[in-house]
């Protein structure tokens, strides 16, 4: 049973569709990079998968069960605003979250907190820095011993050292317990280190969905003379042009024509290319 399957899922807020007609399947054990511009619907998708946002159309199911209205017991969620009880100490928070769960491992939480620098268990959560709070929230999420971990911008308030620690924790979790992870982030270089699957969402729709290596292999970046663009075959995703030179991102490109230089894109160039395309469309 797949950890997460979306079937034509959509969410409308008043007049605007945040997510529209998205369908995808996440295979077990994958670490998925959920990328896309702000306002693309990433947070809404994760919220629907966690069961705290109700879809307008279609639905999501986690391990075969529809997610609407209730968080699946095997799923853990980290929201963008890190919902935590600020007036409790870390110790009390661990106890509180533990008492709200059927399956819980305090040892796992202590293990994760131990891997992080500078978490005082008797400090009130509200006095911790934003980055440390995020790490505490991740520890709480892992205490549930989930099979699917949904993380909305987990790295955004972390400094380089903390990001490093957190990515390590995620990678260890995946390696030891085979947890499936879906994480949204803007920090593509960090994602590239951990993720093996990409889900690119823009304007509420899925633009790219697949194994990262395969997706990158299917695309090509061609640099060459602007005048000669007609000789290039393949589906154009986006292009940046100067007076004389064109840089094109292509999907299913034919062999590189003469006078052009072709390379396989890295994750960053791929995502940027799609973001550029959608920005052009919006204009």
């Amino acid at each position: 049973m797949n950890p997460l399957t979306a079937t034509a899922v959509g969410k409308r807020y008043r007049s605007r569709w945040a997510v529209r007609d998205c369908s995808f399947t996440i295979p077990e054990g994958k670490v998925v990079a959920l990328v896309g511009p702000n306002g693309a619907g990433k947070s809404t998708l994760l919220g629907m998968a966690a069961g705290i946002v109700r879809p307008t159309t279609g639905g999501l199911s986690a391990f075969g069960t529809p997610t609407a209205g209730r968080t699946h017991p095997d799923v853990s969620y980290l929201g963008q605003n890190r919902s935590l009880y600020h007036d409790l100490t870390v110790r009390e928070l661990t106890r509180a979250v533990g008492s709200m769960n059927d399956r819980w491992s305090t040892d796992r939480v202590h293990e994760v907190l131990g891997l992080l620098t500078g978490v005082d268990h008797d400090a009130k959560v509200g006095t911790l820095s934003a980055g440390t709070r995020t790490q505490v929230a991740i520890a709480m999420a892992l205490g549930r011993l989930p099979r699917l971990l949904l993380l909305d911008e987990p790295l955004s308030d972390l400094d380089p050292l903390a990001r490093d620690e957190t990515l390590r924790i995620i990678m260890t979790e995946v390696a030891d317990r085979g947890t499936t992870v879906v994480m949204s982030s803007h920090l593509l270089t960090d994602l590239r280190e951990v993720c093996d699957h990409i889900l690119l969402v823009d304007e509420g729709r899925v633009q790219v969905d697949g194994d990262i290596e395969e997706v990158l292999a299917r695309h090509r970046i061609l640099v060459g003379p602007a005048a000669d663009e007609s000789s290039v075959e393949g589906t154009l995703v986006s292009a940046t042009r100067t007076a004389r030179q064109s840089t094109l991102l292509l999907r299913e490109a034919a062999p590189t024509p003469k006078g052009w230089e072709g390379t396989e894109p890295d994750l960053e160039s791929l995502v940027m290319g799609y973001l550029r395309a959608s920005r052009e469309r919006r204009r």
Partner: peptide, 10 residues
Amino acid sequence: LADLDPLARE
């Protein structure tokens, strides 16, 4: 640059 997507950041 916090909270900005890659394109906006660039």
